[in-house]
Simulated assay, not measured.
Amino acid sequence: MSFDLVAQQPKLQYLVQGVVAFGAVVALILLALHRGPARRRAAALLLLAPALLLLTVGLLLPALRTLVLSFTDSGGEAWAGLDNYVWMFTDPRALVALRNTLAWVVLVPALATAVGLRYAAAVVRARCRTFALSLLLLPMAVSSVGAGVVWKFVYAYRPAEAAQTGLLNRLVVAFGGEPEQWLVESPWNVLLLIVAMVWTQAGFAALLLAGAIRAVPVETTEAARLDGASPRQVFLRITLPAIRPTLLVVLLAQAVGTFKAFDIVRTMTGGQFDTAVLAHEMYDQAFRYGETGRGAALAVLLFVLVTPFVALQVRARRRAG
């Protein structure tokens, strides 16, 4: 296919104009920065203006639009009042998503942090701690979709007369049991999805907590050992209180990330068999079923639930720092 220079000329003009405009803005900012102290505040505001504009266009306006849509009907046109919010707390499907989200927010941070803490405490003083921590960090290099695919293969089911391809069913059959459809039976399938999420998040917890444990003064722990304290007592009474701020940051960060859980559910079950969470149900209602108002209401609820955790996380980070 030949390159039509005449057809591309308007695009080239726009490109050149954009580059020239960008250069002019940069020149004005640099010129303002070299002025006196009285104009430095204006220069700072000028530097922040592009970011503030992008935040307004990409975050604030869509958030306000979503709030308005949550009070409209499925088409997003007629006013529906609080109908979408009433539906959210009365419809069985929506209540399942709320229940599952609560289970995720409680179990994922607790389990991921517990696994990460135990692993960090075991390897933090070892000579091969870098290699040991890297092993637990490997799942973080896999996307959530990739993790969902991996664990879907682990839970894969085939009839008893066929060779099992899923690791879990293969182990069950090897010990004389019958293969199970693990991702079909509720509520156990929710717990199995949570395991996949914990697998991806435990390394993050271990990395931060290992750094916090190494920051505990060695003199304090050695003095406790000389006084006759056991390793368990040293950990519970000295190490754990010392790393409490970091532990709180890890828990809150895990909780905030769990509210956004979507990829694993979408990849492994598609939200079927009572495994949907708020983020997935929001997607289904808005884009699969065309219920724009209900999807927006779920988005607003998700924002309201996440906000306190984010505020606590910011406060905890300030204290930990």
Rank of each mutant, 00 (worst) to 15 (best):
E178P: 02
A147W: 09
N169E: 07
L171K: 11
A206N: 01
T200F: 08
V172D: 10
L240E: 14
R214V: 06
T200G: 13
F175Q: 14
G166Y: 04
A196W: 04
Q201V: 12
L171D: 08
V145G: 00
S186I: 05
F204G: 05
T221P: 01
A229Q: 00
V184L: 13
Y155S: 02
M197E: 15
A205P: 02
P187G: 09
P241Q: 05
R158Q: 15
V195C: 03
V154G: 00
A162M: 10
V173I: 09
E178G: 05
G146M: 04
V195P: 03
S143R: 07
L168I: 02
E161Q: 15
G166I: 06
T221F: 00
R237N: 08
V154Y: 06
E185Y: 14
P241H: 11
R170F: 09
R214A: 15
W151E: 01
Y157K: 04
W188Y: 14
V173N: 11
V142N: 02
S144L: 13
S230Y: 03
R214E: 13
L168N: 01
E219L: 06
E178D: 13
A215P: 00
V190C: 02
A163T: 14
F235W: 11
A229V: 06
Q181A: 12
I194R: 03
P159R: 07
V195S: 11
D227A: 05
T239S: 04
D227T: 09
W151H: 00
G177R: 07
A196H: 02
G203E: 10
L207Q: 09
I213P: 01
G203Y: 13
V234R: 02
A141C: 10
V195E: 07
L226I: 13
I213Q: 03
G177C: 10
A242D: 09
A196Q: 09
V142Y: 05
S230F: 07
W182A: 07
L236C: 10
Q164I: 08
A141V: 13
E161T: 15
K152S: 15
V145F: 10
G211E: 03
A147I: 15
P231Q: 08
T239W: 00
I213G: 04
A205L: 04
S144M: 02
L193T: 04
A229G: 01
Y157C: 02
A212H: 03
R158G: 01
A215F: 04
L168R: 10
Y155K: 01
F153P: 02
L236Y: 14
Y155L: 05
L183A: 02
A196P: 01
Q164M: 06
V150C: 09
V198F: 07
A224S: 09
V150N: 03
E222H: 06
V172T: 11
L226D: 03
V184R: 15
A162L: 12
V198M: 07
T239A: 02
P217S: 05
E185W: 15
V173M: 08
G148Q: 04
K152L: 05
A205S: 12
N169V: 12
A223E: 03
K152C: 12
